[in-house]
Simulated scan of single mutants.
Amino acid sequence: MHVHVNAATSADGKLASRTREQLKISGPQDFERVDHVRAQNDAVMVGVGTVLADDPSLTLDAAERIEKRESTGRPAHPARVVADSRARTPTDARILDDTAETYLLVSEAASESRRAALADAGATVVVAGEERVDLTAGLDALEDHSIERLMVEGGGELIFSLFEDSLVDELSVYVGSLVVGGREAPTLADGDGFTADFPRLDLVGVDRLDDGVVLKWNCKHR
């Protein structure tokens, strides 16, 4: 599976403020870029923290991209994937509407009642891992559902875990012209952090969009 992590950060690397409220970091040109990248992938993935904070739909905006996917025999929108170890996704979350297929990766620690409720709400529930989602096993299971290209849009805990497991192939980051600050504000890659054997990247592109830049890297697997 090809995994493309895409994110927008402030100039100091923050995804949001310390209150976890969504920030407008980029503008219309980058929104267009993100919609284009989504359309190229089979699924779009976020962590449950993003679902709880932002209630995203993770669907395409441009009608011509929807029509192009349908004309080639693909679903109108990429599938949605949520890494949700304890099955905390609300049953009325927008990602559980019938616009696109939704997969929830949960661990064995998620209660049977929550798993059943989310399945009843329309999700395909995939159990991978004991106490927390085993991302390697989870992504392998997604491949069984014909997901070969996966776009990951955050948050920082999920992105760090993907890097930790050497699962990231490509990273693109829009860096906006604002400073957020705050030691509690989420960053591009949170989690425990690396102290050695740092993931290495090859810079392959720099593009100016809106009032910021998009940096593109290919990832060297450790």
Results as ranks from 00 to 15, higher is better:
Asp144Ile: 02
Glu108Tyr: 13
Ile159Arg: 06
Ile159Gln: 01
Glu131Ser: 14
Ile159Ala: 08
Asp134Leu: 04
Val125Thr: 06
Leu167Cys: 07
Phe160His: 05
Glu143Pro: 03
Ala137Thr: 07
Ala119His: 05
Ile147Lys: 02
Glu157Asn: 12
Ala121Gly: 10
Glu153Ser: 11
Tyr174Gly: 07
Val125Ala: 01
Ser177Pro: 15
Leu162Arg: 02
Glu153Ile: 13
Gly129Asp: 09
Arg115Val: 13
Leu139His: 09
Asp140Lys: 14
Val152Arg: 03
Val106Ile: 09
Arg115His: 08
Arg132Met: 11
Glu108Thr: 15
Thr124Glu: 01
Tyr174Val: 05
Leu171Ala: 08
Ala119Arg: 05
Leu158Gly: 05
Ala141Phe: 06
Ser177Trp: 13
Leu142Thr: 00
Ser113Val: 12
Glu130Phe: 11
Leu178Trp: 11
Val173Gly: 10
Ser172Trp: 02
Ser166Trp: 12
Asp169Trp: 06
Gly181Arg: 02
Asp144Leu: 12
Ser172Cys: 11
Asp120Gly: 06
Glu148Trp: 12
Arg132Val: 14
Glu143Lys: 08
Asp144Ser: 14
Val126His: 06
Phe163Thr: 07
Gly122Leu: 08
Gly176Glu: 01
Arg115Ala: 12
Tyr174Met: 11
Ala128Phe: 09
Val179His: 04
Ala128Cys: 12
Ser177His: 15
Leu158His: 04
Arg132Cys: 13
Ser107Arg: 10
Val126Met: 10
Phe160Trp: 01
Tyr174Ala: 11
Leu150Cys: 09
Thr136Gly: 14
Asp120Met: 07
Ser111Trp: 08
Ala110Leu: 15
Ile147Cys: 00
Leu178His: 09
Glu143Arg: 13
Ala110Ser: 12
Gly138Trp: 10
Val127Pro: 13
Ala123Lys: 08
Val175Asp: 02
Ser111Ala: 15
Gly181Met: 00
Val125Ile: 11
Asp134Phe: 05
Val125Asn: 00
Ser146Gly: 02
Val179Ser: 04
Leu178Gly: 08
Gly138Val: 06
Glu170Lys: 13
Leu118Trp: 09
Leu150Asn: 05
Ala117Phe: 10
Val133Ala: 09
Asp134Ser: 07
Leu139Asn: 03
Ala117Glu: 09
Leu171Glu: 07
Val180Asn: 01
Val125Asp: 00
Val168Thr: 09
Leu162Cys: 01
Ala137Phe: 10
Glu108Ser: 15
Met151Asp: 05
Asp134Ala: 09
Glu112Pro: 06
Gly181Ile: 08
Gly154Phe: 02
Phe160Thr: 10
Val173Asn: 04
Leu158Thr: 01
Ser107Ala: 15
Gly155Lys: 02
Gly155Leu: 06
Leu118Glu: 03
Leu150Val: 05
Gly155Phe: 01
Ser161Val: 10
Ser161His: 07
Leu158Val: 04
Leu178Cys: 09
Ser146Phe: 07
Glu143Ser: 14
Leu171Phe: 11
Thr136Asp: 12
Leu118Ile: 15
Phe163Gln: 01
Gly181Cys: 04
Ile159Glu: 00
Met151Pro: 01
